[in-house]
Nucleic acid binder design. Structure first.
Lengths: 130, 130
DNA sequence: ATAACACCTGTAGTTACTAAAGGTTCAAGG
DNA sequence: CCTTGAACCTTTAGTAACTACAGGTGTTAT
């Protein structure tokens, strides 16, 4: 039985965030001491650890909800693998988008290095109307 | 002299977003017809085109503000190159972060494929307390 | 004239938290 | 026992960067 501060330091999730997770239903409603202070047990610790790791891995709250079986039932191993795979796919897509961006930016910047025009070629190329 | 709808279809920026840009000062306060409808000229078109392209390239509003010289003066070519380079650096960092994530997810998923345990190894590995 | 459409304002919702204001409770030292 | 400072409580507002809606006015074509 630990306090919210202890839970926070054990998981690395900020106190406000833990209360927020309770509010939105990611964490169950915590039991209280007579004073009103929240108390947590090992189950809470495991659950928050799980949420924290998912967060580090970039899962959305909706994904975490599904993984935890918050609104439906506990998901099957297949469902979990499917959510994870889907998340991986979207990460790969994001990487590919960012790489394209980087290439475009690098092209645009290169015109700037050979700069002998009175007007900035980056600005020009970005405001040009076709 | 065109309407907000025309400007929107020429630039691909939604009408609500154009009004929003005016509200936050990215676009200048538009002139109005006697009816109250906004009217735009070529200068607005160039400016919105610029903003739209920057947005596609993932620049933050703060960056766009600097590039446009909204709060300070018109930036020098050096300043523009510096903002762009900085943005490229953060894109590269994001790519590298996402790649790490992807590798972690791929590791975690692989344990699931050889699944003969009664409990999901993905969930297990994510909620484990050390 | 009237329908259909474009435009107007103002406000609230999105995601995933974070921070601040203003008030209890707890634990340790004197 | 009393005090003081840390930790806790609630509620509300703020962040980025828009998007969407409600409820009203203007414009255009038949």
């Amino acid at each position: 039985m630990v306090s919210i501060g202890d839970l926070s330091s054990k998981t690395g999730v900020k106190i406000e965030t833990i209360r927020y997770f309770e509010r939105i239903g990611l964490m169950p409603i915590a039991e209280r001491k007579s004073s009103g202070h929240r108390v947590y047990d090992e189950t809470s610790l495991r659950r928050l650890t799980f949420i924290g790791r998912c967060r580090e891995l970039g899962f959305s709250q909706a994904d975490i909800r599904s993984l935890l079986g918050v609104e439906d039932n506990t998901p099957s191993c297949d469902e979990i693998l499917s959510i994870t795979t889907h998340h991986r796919t979207s990460i790969k897509a994001k990487i590919s988008d960012l790489r394209k961006l980087e290439r475009r930016l690098s092209e645009i910047s290169s015109t700037c290095l050979s700069n002998d025009t009175p007007v900035c070629p980056i600005i020009e190329s970005l405001s040009e109307i076709y």
